[in-house]
Design a protein around this nucleic acid. Structure first.
Lengths: 210, 210
DNA sequence: CGCGAATCTTGACGACTGTCAAGATTTCTT
DNA sequence: AAGAAATCTTGACAGTCGTCAAGATTCGCG
């Protein structure tokens, strides 16, 4: 009973432990990254805001960039299904549009640091080639996420989407980024605008039903 | 003839000379900033890619941030009227849409480094409060620029825009950013997609004419 | 021409960065 | 419980950064 607390076969194997530590480190790093951004978040600062010392990073990651990319991928997993509930629970097209707008606003309120980090990293990938592969993959999964919303919306409205998935994603990404910027600037109404714009925009994405 | 080449009254006053130097420095700095991005462009690197030495920066600018903000504002002036020709020369709604799409593609081809710098700086402003005022102003003037295009487009089509200026700007900014990213990633078709998307999107911005 | 002001160069400073290695500590195995 | 493997800490390294000051250089006016 002292050695094996978990009777399940081979739980807590050394390899798993390694992965758990990497995740814990990533989770802690994401906090600092969301606060300071990619450029200003040093490994020492990241370590200080965690339970580890600054040297341990190179035990679990080859270099800073590998840590960053791991963090971004980790972050992706936790947020790429954020709107699946909206898609599943909506009872009508109008209901879906409202829920979607609410959820967009909610995620800005609750996770603004994570979103600005994402935009930071995407911008950095325009200069740093090593980031591009991860950024491209995440961008694709975000596009898929939006496509699921739009497709379900069209289905509920009894018609087809009038625009392709990349365009829909680009549009929502644009107004979302604008709202995030306004929110961080303390502009009153930035979030309410996003909600209104979303509800107004959704019907325009559909092919005429006549 | 040796001293005063320009007979115009009081040209090349000491104050003007100061401003000219600032502009020359900014122009040179923008090249390096567009190449390396905000975080990696050091003052020494900026100076090396210019005719000046690294110390001269602090003679014309108080610190690095003042140089950056000056550069961004300078860049704004040169590009915020890029689509005025399109607005002025278009002969019909469809013609304007085509010209606009072409111009969007053209500016990515010719000035990709400047555009990625702009997105970099806008992202940085989400972390660095000192950048926000300048970024907000530029964002506003870009929105106005898009609004002029959309308004003229609606006018030529004999109707009114169906969406507010911030939404139109957000949408085009979104798909433009996407195309820029695709272009930098070497994705074939990224630019052609932007052209097609623009032409297809424009009619959707109008109120029904019936 | 000569002198004072403007402009520029050079070199140095302290602080911070990513990286790494050597040793301390913990954990696991036998 | 003892030894081996893993994990972690600490301290140091070579660079780079923004900033600044002292001196060299250039410019403009009398």
């Amino acid at each position: 009973m002292t050695q094996v607390a978990a009777p399940r076969a081979a739980r807590r194997t050394p390899a798993d432990k390694h992965d758990e530590r990497r995740k814990a480190l990533a989770e802690s790093a994401l906090r600092t990254l969301g606060e300071l951004g990619y450029a200003r978040a040093s490994l020492r600062e990241i370590a200080n805001n965690s339970e580890f010392s600054h040297g341990v990073v190179h035990y679990y990651f080859h270099d800073k960039l590998e840590l960053i990319v791991y963090c971004v991928r980790y972050y992706k997993q936790t947020c790429v299904h954020r709107y699946d509930g909206v898609v599943a629970e909506a009872t009508s097209a109008a209901d879906l549009a409202t829920r979607f707008g609410d959820k967009l606003v909610e995620t800005i309120v609750e996770e603004a640091p994570m979103h600005r980090l994402w935009y930071d990293l995407r911008s950095q990938s325009m200069f740093e080639e090593s980031l591009r592969e991860a950024v491209t993959q995440i961008d694709q999964s975000l596009e898929d996420m939006i496509a699921r919303v739009v497709n379900r919306y069209a289905e509920l409205a009894g018609t087809e989407p009038a625009i392709a998935a990349p365009v829909a994603y680009g549009m929502f990404d644009g107004i979302f980024q604008q709202a995030l910027l306004g929110h961080l600037n303390g502009r009153d109404g930035a979030l309410e605008d996003l909600r209104t714009q979303t509800v107004a925009l959704m019907p325009m994405l559909l092919a005429p039903t006549s």
